[in-house]
Design a protein around this nucleic acid. Structure first.
Length: 273
DNA sequence: CAATCAACCTGGGTGC
DNA sequence: TGCACCCAGGTTGATT
């Protein structure tokens, strides 16, 4: 579900809402989602105030007075800020009880997790594995360099979090269409002009989706208030198999690339080998 | 180093 | 209606 725009939307709202609230306890039907264990998680954080919520790639970082924890939503995670007594989400797995509020972690597929960090050192190690951020240190020059260095398919590079932070399947597909580049093009063979266009496309599309508060597809991303985003009404190629290309007379094709559904227009997206 | 596949889980949609 | 099969926003690890 959540790629950079969805996670960033959640981060902004939680950062505003959680500051000053106190962590009280954990209740869960799915203990493996709270690490190392729900009991240790609760023991460490009980009584601490939330100071801020940050983000790196698709990871949310919760900063409390003496400890930090991270949350990864993987494919179907939701974080919902609720009043005590609000009806539960159909896929609710974990409830973090706070002063006057509940932060609920719902996840149809149970791949997501919250993880208590033992030290700032552990956080640093965790963050060190991510590549540059599109709205921070991913400059156009840096981006060109990254593409030039890889012999893999360009779509795989875009989605590799060690190379570039935050892009997932939806935005990688749509950005490649915007830049008129075939997803299976060899990264190192992309021309500087194409790389520049792709960089622009990525920034544009992520900005647009953040404005629209992300994309809510099937099981569905929700913001912390349980509301849908609306980028799904603006998908360019994603899940548009058989539909006309928004730009010309091509038909959007679906192909499996690296185990992921890959959508593109064979007419206007150039394959560079 | 790159590509492929399975695993982790659950549910929706489709086609027979 | 039932059932088999494919699909899904992500990431990791084994194998070829």
């Amino acid at each position: 579900m959540p790629e950079l725009p969805e996670v960033e939307t959640i981060r902004r709202d939680l950062d505003k809402e959680l500051r000053g609230l106190t962590f009280k306890s954990v209740e869960t039907t799915t203990p493996k989602m709270v690490r190392p264990t729900p009991a240790e998680f609760e023991k460490a954080l009980k009584g601490q105030k939330f100071l801020a919520v940050a983000r790196r790639a698709k990871l949310l970082i919760f900063e409390l007075e003496h400890n930090k924890f991270v949350v990864h939503l993987r494919l179907t995670g939701r974080l919902l800020l609720c009043k005590i007594g609000d009806p539960p989400d159909e896929f609710q797995r974990v409830v973090f009880k706070l002063s006057g509020r509940e932060l609920r972690f719902a996840d149809l597929r149970k791949f997501g997790y919250a993880k208590l960090l033992k030290s700032d050192d552990e956080l640093e190690k965790l963050l060190a594995q991510f590549g540059p951020e599109p709205f921070d240190d991913l400059t156009k020059e840096k981006f060109k360099e990254i593409l030039a260095k890889s012999g893999r398919r360009v779509k795989d590079v875009l989605m590799d979090q060690e190379k570039i932070s935050g892009l997932g399947n939806i935005y990688a597909n749509d950005a490649l269409w915007l830049a008129k580049i075939h997803p299976q093009s060899k990264s190192s063979k992309i021309t500087p002009k194409q790389a520049g266009d792709l960089y622009q496309a990525i920034v544009e599309i992520l900005e647009k989706s953040i404005k629209l508060r992300g994309a809510s597809d099937r099981p569905g991303y929700r913001d912390i208030y349980g509301q849908k985003g609306s980028y799904q009404d603006h998908f360019l190629t994603y899940q548009k198999t058989g539909k006309p290309c928004p730009r010309g007379d091509g038909i959007i094709e679906r192909r499996n690339v690296n185990g992921r559904g890959t959508f593109f227009c064979p007419k206007c997206q150039v394959l560079v080998k």
